[in-house]
Design a protein around this nucleic acid. Structure first.
Lengths: 166, 166
DNA sequence: TATTGTTATACTCTATAACTATA
DNA sequence: TATAGTTATAGAGTATAACAATA
């Protein structure tokens, strides 16, 4: 177990990762928000799957997944076909156009990282990947047997807003 | 320089960090969204400062900072006083109530991490912190001398949405 | 004229809840 | 009755642009 100050720093670093994600988001082509890119990436990595599975991999609610998928499907990047085994389900599959988009995205991502992390060794990136994967797994696992991570929404003072002179 | 597949994995891990951030956000007390918590944390770590400096540290636009600060100020967690040296500026300072809130936040954060990362050593967390700090610095530095990270918003095919049977 | 900060507007991502269709 | 997926609604975060006050 680690020291309290390390936890505080980790919390801060994680919140600061947002800036990096926004940098990466700038390479996204028109009409392709981050949600669509994430959907395409997972379909490429894991092959065709159902909504519910994709939702798990994205680690977001299925309603969110549904909207990302609808967006990508409307633009022809994925197709949704009926599941013969269960008519409630839909099978999601990457289209050639979606694959083209992914290829372009991969080129741009590599471009940005190669430029930005030009002084990182292969091993540096590997270590960060390994630690991040472990972090996600630590949180993901705890989320499954969801214990008592959340707190009551009625804490400390200042429950009623403080009035100030305007 | 690292391999292309490592970059792809890093991109994916970073996008997945969102789930961890949402887990951490669940410990936030009522009335205190993540933006406020970030403002308070930075004021504690760096002491009183102006909006523009805070905006830099948050790595977001000043208009965003302004809204987070207004929220925190309305609840009495920070105070804004005039800068005698420049009447356009405002000096931001943590109040005792804000410090109380921060102390409670630190307790809860430590709690969650201690529970979730119970099999992480001090050194594990330290390494992740070090690599994340370096990542942010690599991106932050490149953002300053902002070269040509962004791409034209008119790429590849599918510029006009594909029509499907509804 | 340039800079500090605020506000209006718009976009993305997310969750909850209500709903449809099928199991 | 329970489950897969969709849609409506609301909340949080962000950026751009227009604006006010001061330098």
């Amino acid at each position: 177990m680690a020291a309290q100050s390390q936890y505080a720093e980790l919390a801060h670093q994680l919140s600061a990762v947002g800036a990096v994600k926004r940098s990466l988001a700038r390479i996204l082509p028109a009409e392709c928000p981050g949600g669509s890119a994430a959907v395409l990436t997972l379909l490429e990595a894991h092959g065709e799957m159902r909504m519910s599975r994709l939702s798990e991999l994205l680690a977001v609610d299925m309603s969110v997944t549904s909207r990302h998928v609808a967006h990508a499907a409307q633009r022809g990047w994925i197709e949704r076909s009926a599941d013969p085994a269960d008519k409630r389900s839909r099978i999601l599959r990457l289209t050639p156009a979606g694959q083209d988009l992914l290829d372009e995205l991969a080129r741009r991502t590599t471009d940005v990282f190669a430029r930005t992390l030009d002084d990182w060794t292969d091993d540096d990136v590997g270590q960060l990947n390994r630690l991040l994967a472990r972090l996600l797994s630590s949180f993901g696992d705890s989320r499954d047997r969801r214990p008592d991570l959340s707190y009551p929404r009625t804490p400390m003072r200042q429950e009623t807003p403080v009035r100030h002179r305007t």
